[in-house]
Computed example of a mutant assay.
Amino acid sequence: MAALAEQLSPAELDWPAVHLAALTRSFGDRTILDRLDLDIPAGQFVALLGHSGSGKSTLLRAIAGLDHDVTGSGEIRAPQRISVAFQDSRLLPWRRVLENVVLGTPIRGQEAAQRGRAALTEVGLSGRERAWPRELSGGEAQRAALARSLVWEPELLLADEPFGALDALTRIKMHTLLRELWERHRPSVLLVTHDVDEAIVLADRVLVLDHGRLSVDLTIDLPHPRTYRDPRVAEYREQLLVALGVKED
Score class of each variant (00 low, 15 high):
Ala2Trp: 14
Ser9Tyr: 12
Ser9Gly: 15
Leu13Glu: 14
Val18Trp: 01
His19Arg: 13
His19Ser: 10
Leu23His: 04
Thr24Val: 11
Thr24Trp: 08
Arg25Trp: 09
Arg25Cys: 14
Ser26Arg: 15
Ser26Val: 12
Ser26Glu: 14
Phe27Pro: 01
Asp29Gly: 15
Asp29Trp: 08
Thr31Val: 10
Ile32Met: 04
Leu33Lys: 09
Arg35Val: 04
Arg35Thr: 10
Gly43Pro: 07
Phe45Ala: 11
Gly53Phe: 05
Ser57Val: 04
Arg61Ser: 12
Ile63Met: 06
Ile63Asp: 02
Asp67Arg: 01
His68Lys: 11
Asp69Val: 02
Gly74Lys: 05
Gly74Leu: 07
Glu75Trp: 14
Arg77Met: 10
Ile82Met: 05
Ser83Cys: 03
Ala85Cys: 13
Phe86Ile: 08
Ser89Ala: 14
Ser89Cys: 04
Leu92Glu: 06
Arg95Trp: 05
Arg96Ser: 04
Leu103Met: 02
Gly104Val: 00
Arg108Phe: 13
Gly109Gln: 13
Gln110Val: 15
Gly116Phe: 06
Arg117Trp: 09
Ala119Cys: 05
Leu125Cys: 02
Ser126Pro: 09
Gly127Gln: 11
Gly127Tyr: 15
Gly127Arg: 12
Glu129Pro: 02
Ala131Leu: 03
Pro133Lys: 05
Glu135Asn: 12
Gly139Asp: 00
Ala141Pro: 03
Ala141Thr: 06
Arg143Val: 01
Leu150Gln: 08
Leu150Thr: 09
Val151Lys: 04
Trp152Val: 11
Glu153Met: 12
Glu155Lys: 09
Leu158His: 02
Ala159Asp: 01
Glu161Cys: 04
Glu161Leu: 02
Glu161Ile: 05
Phe163Ile: 06
Asp167His: 06
Thr170Cys: 05
Ile172Leu: 15
Met174Arg: 10
His175Glu: 15
Thr176Asn: 15
Leu178Ala: 08
Arg184Ala: 08
Arg186Gly: 06
Val189Arg: 03
Val192Arg: 01
Thr193Leu: 05
Thr193Val: 06
Asp195His: 09
Ile200Tyr: 07
Val201Met: 11
Leu202Gly: 00
Leu202Lys: 02
Leu202Met: 08
Val206Tyr: 00
Val206Cys: 00
Leu207Met: 05
Asp210Lys: 12
Gly212Met: 08
Leu214Val: 12
Val216Trp: 14
Leu218Glu: 11
Thr219Gln: 13
Thr219Cys: 10
Ile220Tyr: 07
Leu222Phe: 07
Leu222Trp: 05
Arg226Ser: 10
Thr227Pro: 11
Pro231Gln: 10
Arg232His: 14
Arg232Cys: 11
Glu235His: 14
Arg237Thr: 06
Arg237Gln: 06
Arg237Trp: 03
Leu240Pro: 00
Leu240Gln: 02
Leu240Ile: 07
Leu241Pro: 01
Leu241Ile: 00
Val246Pro: 00
Lys247Asn: 09
Glu248Ile: 11
